[in-house]
């Protein structure tokens, strides 16, 4: 079976959608030369009209995409750095997201915002290492964080075809993954995936942390049976899928690369405990409150949710009750 890298999966999704729909075009910084590699080969194949390099004007080119989408285009905007989303939060949340409701349904804004390399990039320090997906989930913007090459392809394709704005976070820690994928297909937005079934604890893991959760589940296999649930889309969240899992296991841990306060882990736990009587208080493993990733690699790792904390949380919820 052919092996597909996560990065190549994003590239193939862009190429397939550009080929399928003339209204799709790409905007971003250094995308002609494919500085992030996800647009490699696309300039040659689709030309500079549809693979448009932009000046460093994130606010204008984000709203340019909104305007194009208002009249039927399907722009994909690449951001080289996750923190650029802070710069264009207004343009996405206050404009792209609000236009359909504010106009009483006169328009749609089908823009995809793609961040290849979100979260820590070891050594890139405070201003290049954020993972602000919870902000978009809070704002009600469709938000996906694919964990695998197949999901990277399938969710990006679905994002481009979606009639609403969608933010696609491709975690830096997942970009080099490879997997055997014969024929990648679209993955529906808003549907999670159970990567590993288990009976004792449900671990909800976001993005690259799915692989940490699977590794920990394997390590603990003799002691506790861990189910690993990957929501894939954080907003809208697959509540039915998760509640089905937790209803069986009765125990919940969430591992999430957001800052702790108001991160998606808090929302997951709150929603579950509103509807399910757990056998033990749930736990979450996150970045600390207000985290700024320090430069030195040991410090960077110290504020990211890791396997040791996850093992501890699983042990804790397994013991209680």
């Amino acid at each position: 079976m052919p092996r597909l890298s996560y990065r190549k999966a994003l590239n193939r999704a862009l190429a397939d959608e550009l080929a399928r729909d003339e209204e799709v075009f790409l905007l971003g910084e250094d995308i002609r030369v494919a500085a992030s590699a996800v647009t490699a080969g696309l300039l040659k194949r689709f030309g500079p009209e549809r693979v448009r390099d932009t000046p460093l004007s994130e606010q204008a080119f984000t709203s340019f995409a909104t305007g194009a989408a208002l009249v039927g285009a399907r722009p994909v905007v690449e951001f080289q750095i996750p923190a650029l989303l802070f710069l264009v939060f207004e343009q996405i949340v206050n404009h792209a997201h609000k236009f359909p409701l504010m106009t009483g349904g006169q328009c749609a804004v089908p823009v995809t915002y793609l961040v290849p390399g979100s979260g820590s990039r070891t050594g890139w320090a405070g201003q290049h290492s954020d993972h602000p997906y919870s902000l978009f989930a809070h704002a009600g913007v469709t938000t996906v964080v694919p964990a695998t090459p197949a999901d990277a392809y399938g969710l990006l394709v679905s994002a481009i075809r979606c009639d609403d704005p969608v933010v696609v976070f491709a975690p830096a820690a997942a970009m080099e993954l490879r997997a055997e994928v014969s024929d990648p297909v679209p993955v529906p937005l808003g549907r999670g995936r159970v990567h590993r079934t288990g009976d004792d604890v449900t671990v909800v893991a976001v993005g690259h942390l799915v692989h940490d959760a699977l590794a920990v589940a394997d390590e603990l296999a003799g002691e506790v049976s861990v189910e690993v649930f990957d929501p894939r889309t954080l907003y809208p969240f697959d509540w039915d899928g998760l509640l089905g899992s937790v209803a069986r296991t009765g125990r919940l841990v969430v591992v999430d690369d957001s800052n702790r306060s108001c991160g998606i882990a808090g929302e997951v736990i709150a929603t579950v405990v509103e509807q399910v009587r757990l056998q033990a208080p749930p736990r979450r493993v996150t970045r600390p409150d207000g985290a700024v990733l320090p430069f030195a690699p040991v410090l960077d790792r110290a504020v990211q949710p890791g396997r040791e904390l996850l093992r501890h949380a699983i042990a804790h919820v397994s013991k209680d009750g």
Binding site: F61, T66, A69, P75
Partner: peptide
């Protein structure tokens, strides 16, 4: 920027 994008598209 919005009208610029709309006219361009």
């Amino acid at each position: 920027a919005i009208v610029t994008g709309a006219v361009w598209a």
